[in-house]
């Protein structure tokens, strides 16, 4: 299946190793990725908050680029997925908004028609490819305990996104199980990571993160698994900021799901990608017992955030 790939600004320029992991696993699942001249999705908490018309017009331009190529869009970030999906929903429902947007796009030689679907990597892996196919590709299971955080913007609004249950998401846990991990349940599983208010009130943002991490820490996972680059950065770098502000002691390794998938598939070059992580983990060999496992998280935090 061929897609217009939408890595989004955050993944492309701040978490390139996560993008790399998607590009590594894609061909093994018959996913072909095409790069187009997209702009930022745009992000709801900044651009949309300033001007709803600007948000919907930029989103429409992005979707129209994929439509011109006859491709569906494959998103990698929850924020981009939500932003593009909501814009599409609004444009398909309200012809007057669509016409207004198309008046502007005409000047760029583009038209929004509503023919391309917006699909997140999470949906492509779980709903289209399926757990069984994924399991069948695993050559080196990853035997660690994890908590999953699907991300607000993949879950809500549930009536429009249909990715997983907004209150009891389980699909990412099943994707983790498929590659040998043990997903743990925790209290505030559907709670926000706090990223949404980082630009408006950073202390509040890290206080939300502290609440979320406290709930995660209670079940003592080896790592946190996410499907959004913004959530990734909030957890991985943000925990150190939260530690400084609140005197907490969070040191969890964080993974974007396809990184672990690439590891489980034993694809070459993953060690280089893992070197980019700020909190390291020494993954146990599949045959190792729990007692033999060593996580390197405690003493491998680099000095700069």
């Amino acid at each position: 299946m061929k897609f217009a790939f939408f890595p989004g600004c955050t993944m492309a320029y701040r978490l390139p190793f996560a993008e790399k992991s998607i590009r590594m696993v894609a061909p093994h699942f018959d996913i072909e990725l095409v790069d187009l001249a997209f702009t930022c999705c745009p992000e709801p908490n900044t651009v949309r908050a300033l001007s709803d018309d600007t948000w919907i017009t930029f989103a429409a331009r992005n979707i129209a680029l994929a439509e011109a190529e006859g491709l569906d869009i494959l998103t990698a970030c929850a924020g981009c997925h939500e932003s593009l999906s909501l814009a599409k929903h609004e444009l398909d429902k309200k012809p007057e908004r669509k016409n207004k947007v198309n008046e502007l796009l005409k000047g760029l030689g583009l038209e929004y028609r509503g023919t391309s679907k917006i699909v997140h990597m999470h949906q492509q892996l779980f709903d289209e490819i399926g757990i069984e196919t994924i399991s069948s590709k695993v050559v080196k299971p990853v035997p660690i305990k994890v908590v999953t955080h699907t991300g607000c913007h993949l879950l809500r609004p549930e009536r429009i996104l249909h990715v997983d249950s907004a209150e009891v998401p389980v699909k990412l846990d099943m994707l983790c199980e498929a590659i040998g991990m043990v997903p743990l349940d925790y209290m505030d599983k559907t709670m926000c990571c706090g990223a949404g208010v980082r630009k408006t009130n950073s202390v509040t943002s890290y206080a939300v993160l502290r609440e979320k991490m406290t709930s995660i820490a209670m079940v003592e996972p080896d790592a946190i698994v996410v499907f959004c680059p913004t959530c990734f950065i909030t957890f991985e770098s943000g925990q150190r900021v939260a530690n400084r502000i609140f005197g907490t002691d969070f040191k969890f390794p964080v993974f974007y799901y396809t990184e672990l998938l690439a590891i489980a598939m034993n694809l070459p070059g993953m060690d280089i990608l893992l070197a980019e992580h700020r909190v390291k983990i020494e993954l146990p060999a599949s045959a190792e017992t729990k007692e033999e496992r060593k996580t390197g998280a405690k003493d491998s935090i680099p000095s700069s955030p």
Partner: peptide
Amino acid sequence: APPDVIESAESLMADGCQSPISSRS
């Protein structure tokens, strides 16, 4: 609007991307 929100919008206006694209990235 908070200043950081305005800054993000300006970044998008400048290069189409929310986070400024550095030569390092």
